[in-house]
Write a protein that binds this DNA or RNA. Sequence first.
DNA 1: TAAATTCGTTAAAACGTTTTAAAGATATTG
DNA 2: CAATATCTTTAAAACGTTTTAACGAATTTA
Lengths: 350, 350
Amino acid sequence: MERKHPVTIVDVAVHAGVSAGTVSNVLTGKRPVSEATRERVLRAVEELGYQPNLLARSLVNRSSDTLGVVTYGLEFYGPSRTLVGIERAAAELGYSLLLDLLHEPDVADVDAVLDELTARRVDGIIWAVHEVGDNRAWIDQERLRALPPIIFLTMAPRPGASIVSTDNRLGAQLATHHLIATGRGTIGVITGPLTWWEARQRLEGWRCALDEVGMDSDDTLVYEGSWSAASGEAALEALLRRRPNLDAVFACNDQMALGALRYCHATGRRVPEEISVVGFDNIPESAFFWPALTTIRQHLLDLGRVAVEELHRQIELRLQDAEPAPPTIHLLQPELIVRESTLQPIQTSF
Amino acid sequence: MERKHPVTIVDVAVHAGVSAGTVSNVLTGKRPVSEATRERVLRAVEELGYQPNLLARSLVNRSSDTLGVVTYGLEFYGPSRTLVGIERAAAELGYSLLLDLLHEPDVADVDAVLDELTARRVDGIIWAVHEVGDNRAWIDQERLRALPPIIFLTMAPRPGASIVSTDNRLGAQLATHHLIATGRGTIGVITGPLTWWEARQRLEGWRCALDEVGMDSDDTLVYEGSWSAASGEAALEALLRRRPNLDAVFACNDQMALGALRYCHATGRRVPEEISVVGFDNIPESAFFWPALTTIRQHLLDLGRVAVEELHRQIELRLQDAEPAPPTIHLLQPELIVRESTLQPIQTSF
DNA sequence: TAAATTCGTTAAAACGTTTTAAAGATATTG
DNA sequence: CAATATCTTTAAAACGTTTTAACGAATTTA
């Protein structure tokens, strides 16, 4: 016989001959209950195949054990890998994930997304959309106060906002230092779109590393790409036209580095003998490019994990005192991975 | 002054001088309400900044406008891109997404995931975990009846199960036909792990295409990879040792194809002059490999979209009559993308 | 042994919605 | 003008939990 309605807590209660409250106490373990009735209740749960309705529970608890994740560009390695890190940590802490994807990083309908998340009473939010243009303009104290705790990924420091990010500036410095250390004399850079905060940070790191040692960081050595491999190909072509003696290039992601490598093959330039190439991100394929790509590894799983853990901390904190948790900033250190594309230092002519 | 509790529907009601029921009618639009009070209510909503509590609404509606998505391997292009397709279609249809990631495709704790999803009263489920080993053993009529409507991605036909999948067999046939048509004589295959249904389908497609024209599809032409580029590299080495006159290889994903290309470079074999290479998936990087990779394009966004739309249909259907919707199978057609890695047909010697 | 504690349990009141059934208006009909 | 039909609106009852306050029973203390 088909039962129309799923079994509820009072079904269990009558079956076990106790009150609904007692069943609740057994299941949540929040209040003591005698061993005898405890067993009776558990047996009833078993026999009836009872499953608590989390919606009802969340309603009365005013907390859903759910985290809202807002992200963009999941088809790319960085965001999707970060999401994996988020999910793992969230699962370990007992949170479910409500996922929202933006279709454009800049013209996002932020309000609609935020409204939906708060309407579903998420306990916290992870804003994993990269900072592009003024897509952070909505953030202000007033707004934040009306939201559950929220962690921002990859954005410039901002009063009142908790942030977790890779140290992009440092990563670019590591890459550039490495090129300098392997004896390169004219080092170009292929940046991401400079509306992206990340891209600007990486450009800054490149420039800073060169300036430190008094090397040329002229604008003719800078090409603004679009993160795509196609733009990397075009970039190297343009850079070489402007600076024929270019002997190294730092591409601000692995896709653009791939495009640069392709341009070298197409024009018969040998890598790394004639031109040395460094990427950023360490996508799994990069180790199998020809030649294998030297790159900067971000710890993306950790990025997600740290964000969730910090968010969890803030949620707990808000439950206790009404004081808003002081905003924190976590900066994760990337690391250099040396492969064939920079392996053989050439003997420079000066 | 901080209000402790967020504003509720009765706050709006008293502010507008009506009953809670009327406010509900205005907001949901399910029952007529006079223009005058309608305006008054909307103004009250505006002034108080009211946001309906979706948990409460879902509780009484017995439906959460939420879809559960269970997936695995999000760091790979296929799953993450499919998820994007799912999210877009879901957003258009007004569903939110509850995301669950499995950490292993095979030894998954299916019950826990399913319990959580039903406990949260999702309206439907998309099971986007690839079929590996016997990780579908839990599916039976009894079990399915206790669940909300569910769509399975990428799995073998099974009684009672609705499925959406790319036609992997066809894709492999397209790839192999293309190699045959460009005059190749000895065509190897690098498969994925044969515990994966997808991998077996692609292998079958390769074999079928060869058998059709009476060409050699001996087991010495088959190497079982692991989907990774490293395994692709090892694969081509092994295949060439076994069959030195191999002049083409079909790698069952682009990563393994990349590994194969790398092996060719490392050993000085020219592609496509000496060996022709085809991949599968059309990851964005593949167009910039050296040489650019001929591959099979899956329509992953559509895969996700079709799954959501079919799921939506089944949800609506179940709301109306109690009859379970008859299971459906959607098979999406992949397409061949020809690039440099097979571009120049060689004049074979026979 | 009476009074004071503890312990286990329960009935009832939340939580914030939607829906049902009924009641008031208002308009229509005979 | 009475009777009937049509609109609007509302109070109350769900939805399935947890929590509060109170209540007996059993135990300890004086």
